[in-house]
Design a protein around this nucleic acid. Sequence first.
DNA 1: TCCGCTTAACCTTAATTAACCTAAATTGCT
DNA 2: AGCAATTTAGGTTAATTAAGGTTAAGCGGA
Lengths: 228, 228
Amino acid sequence: MATIKILYVEDEANLGTIVSETLEQKGFDVRLIADGNLVLQACLTFKPDIAVLDVMLPGVDGFTIGKNLRLQFPDLPIIFLTAKTQTKDVVEGFQSGGTDYMRKPFSVEELIIRIQNQLRLRNVQQVASEIIRIGKFIYHPKKLLLENGEHRWQLSSREAEVLDVFSRYINRTIDRKTLLLEVWGDDSFFHSRNLDVYIRKLRDYFGSTNGVQIITLKGKGYQFVVEN
Amino acid sequence: MATIKILYVEDEANLGTIVSETLEQKGFDVRLIADGNLVLQACLTFKPDIAVLDVMLPGVDGFTIGKNLRLQFPDLPIIFLTAKTQTKDVVEGFQSGGTDYMRKPFSVEELIIRIQNQLRLRNVQQVASEIIRIGKFIYHPKKLLLENGEHRWQLSSREAEVLDVFSRYINRTIDRKTLLLEVWGDDSFFHSRNLDVYIRKLRDYFGSTNGVQIITLKGKGYQFVVEN
DNA sequence: TCCGCTTAACCTTAATTAACCTAAATTGCT
DNA sequence: AGCAATTTAGGTTAATTAAGGTTAAGCGGA
């Protein structure tokens, strides 16, 4: 594998420099950014393998950045760093799309270990995702095939793209905007009407008696309820 | 798959019991084991979705157990718990096959979050079967479903959000401000009128003869009285 | 204690907004 | 051209918010 690229967002200059240098000594390619507003842009150009975000940034909230990153880069591992100690901050961190969470002060060695761990987990998961179980249904994302005991459906590509998103949010809520951004790339009015059409198609596939439901959360999105 | 199964290895009896009970309250199926030598055996019979290992076990070293587990169960998420603070212990944790690592003392809430995070990273399905008993009613928060023997109601998202708060305050008082802040995020005048509307809807669901009452405490909030 | 004032909560309706659904139009293949 | 998939369109329905009149609890002063 090529060098691992780390996007590191940290506003404290001293800390940022020290950590960056240490990571670079260990062979990582580090892009240090102090301004939270530049993160999305940097992700597009730098294409990091992992993002490390300080949460306590001036101006923008690190969790908000995390959420936006997650929308644009569904598979990017994100480690939050924060001085906050309350459990609810940890909760918020994971809900904001984080894949790991560390409290400050932290040791750089531990950060490195956790970075490597995240990359390892991501690889494991990517290999494993050939088949996704959705209640009594089985979805083959690579083949665009959805089946249950009785039927199999060859999905169209749009149908599959929407279901891909849903399959990552089993028994969780998906906001409409996430869906629109991931599938159509923007959340304009027309695409929104469009999404309605595909929600309808998925609901038709799942039926009303198979323990898989897409519940509308008006003004928010959907709850993808899957009974086991 | 039914509920999520957690293998929890902990030799301190008190701590083990408390954590197990809390996890069970949250709907997990927990197998508590005190003796590290029994872990492999328990994994074979119990088939957990995730393992939580205390590292400081008498006799066997938790890291060694982790390594063995990893050999036998390459995809099992493992969270190490330890009082050790040194970075090298964290390093050893991850090298021993761990997928996450927490320092003692820890909050059970954070443990739950990290468990769910590990499961999410592995695409293990979360359960939709969590239920809350409210007198003769059963509320399914994940499905936004309220039922008693006679009826079932698919709640709207706002109705469910308000009931979510109430369900945490069974036979206790909730102040109006708490409700407003949790559901609408602020306690402005309009949202306050708005809350009235939803209180009314909930009262309609519960009816006047089913032993569930929302009693007004004027100027303070509500008392959520539930007979058993 | 009783009366009246104040204020919070109740209740109903209207307005707004979001989502649903169906079908027609368009696009993009082959 | 013909077909399937996708997008566009618009009428319909439902959830939510906003508004305002009504009721009643609580409180202070006589």
